[in-house]
């Protein structure tokens, strides 16, 4: 796939359609490819695309679409939802972007490979239902399904929702993905149990801000956590209250805008399942206001910033809570 992508990118660069390419290059290790901007066809020699290229490139387009000339971007299905959401919020100029949509069968979580005993990873390759991992200590073949990240296991959609052209076949939305099962399990807990669960998770937070910085919905010109006037800015988690509130405030800020791309959990160095907070909001909104997927359509009105006569009354929410 990488060769096809590079070929197409250099064609578009040479015929003047685009001025730059946003993709990935190798990071320090083979399993941490980094988003990269390529300004010339020659520079594309450093372009990589493999099963580790998990990062969502949409957010970088906010800055790139302000530059002169068009930017070519490669978007996986989940990234395209973020792209649409940013379009809805007028953060990206669609005219300045050329999108190549990528068929995706899920990205590999390097931690899962380690669990399966892979050390000194040199490369990975998808072969049918399996992946072949080449390591310093020889080749290992593993079922791909066992090596995927959480968000790919419960993949909500393999459909690229915004593109100018596709590489590979476009997929379908999977409404039976079971991504809310874990949320339902949390809802079934008693408040005390749930509090303990979240304290256990959030107490590990080192307030590195990675979740916020990667999040395509967290693209404010001036984040409230960086604004001394907001009254909640603080760089370090000074106390347990801060630990809790940082993530809860963030979840509220992205509510209705979060496309559930799962980048927050992917980049968390402490493996906090932050996506569960966002999914709780999505589940609640679906239940109260009908199914809504942020980013499925550019320009859609999220239920929280829309009013229709069919909206549920607040009492419905109380009744729902009481019936539990």
């Amino acid at each position: 796939m990488q060769e096809v992508m590079v070929k197409r990118a250099s064609e578009l660069m040479k015929d003047g359609t685009v001025s730059r390419v946003l993709g990935w290059k190798n990071g320090e290790f083979v399993y941490d490819p980094t988003p990269a901007v390529f300004e010339s066809a020659e520079a594309l020699s450093a372009f990589v695309y493999n099963d580790f290229c998990a990062s969502n490139l949409s957010k970088y387009l906010i800055a790139l679409s302000k530059k002169n000339g068009k930017t070519l971007v490669f978007l996986k299905p989940c990234d395209s939802y973020s792209f649409n959401q940013l379009l809805t919020e007028h953060r990206i100029d669609r005219e300045k972007i050329y999108i190549i949509g990528l068929e995706c069968s899920g990205k590999v979580d390097e931690a899962k490979l380690r669990e399966a005993g892979c050390e000194g990873i040199l490369s990975v390759k998808t072969e049918g239902e399996d992946i072949v991992v080449d390591t310093l200590y020889g080749e290992k073949t593993l079922p791909k399904a066992d090596c995927l990240g959480e968000r790919c296991i419960t993949c909500k959609s393999r459909k690229v929702v915004a593109f100018d052209e596709m590489i590979g076949e476009n997929g379908e939305v999977n409404s039976e993905c079971g991504r809310f099962d874990q949320v339902a399990a949390l809802e079934a807990m008693t408040p005390d149990e749930r509090y303990e669960f979240w304290r256990g998770e959030l107490s590990r937070c080192i307030r590195c801000n990675a979740c916020r910085n990667i999040c395509p919905a967290c693209s404010c010109e001036n984040c409230v956590f960086d604004n001394p006037k907001s009254g909640i800015s603080q760089k370090a988690a000074a106390d347990t209250f801060e630990e809790n509130m940082f993530h809860i405030i963030r979840a509220f800020h992205v509510a209705g805008r979060c496309t559930d791309c799962g980048e927050c959990s992917r980049v968390c160095p402490q493996q906090i399942p932050l996506h569960l907070l966002n999914r709780k909001f999505i589940k609640d909104m679906n239940e109260c206001y009908g199914e809504y997927q942020a980013g499925a359509e550019a320009g859609s009105r999220a239920p929280l910033v829309n009013y229709t006569l069919d909206d549920c009354e607040p009492s419905v929410v109380y009744e729902r809570e009481a019936s539990k």
Partner: peptide
């Protein structure tokens, strides 16, 4: 200085009081 121009406020405004304009904040000429 803090506005993202995301239109959330215009969506919730019941009076249609909010509009948007493109403003040049650049000190450079690009």
């Amino acid at each position: 200085a803090m506005c993202n121009g995301c239109s959330t406020c215009a969506n919730v405004c019941p009076y249609g009081a909010i509009t948007y304009e493109d403003k040049d904040f650049s000190r450079r000429k690009d």
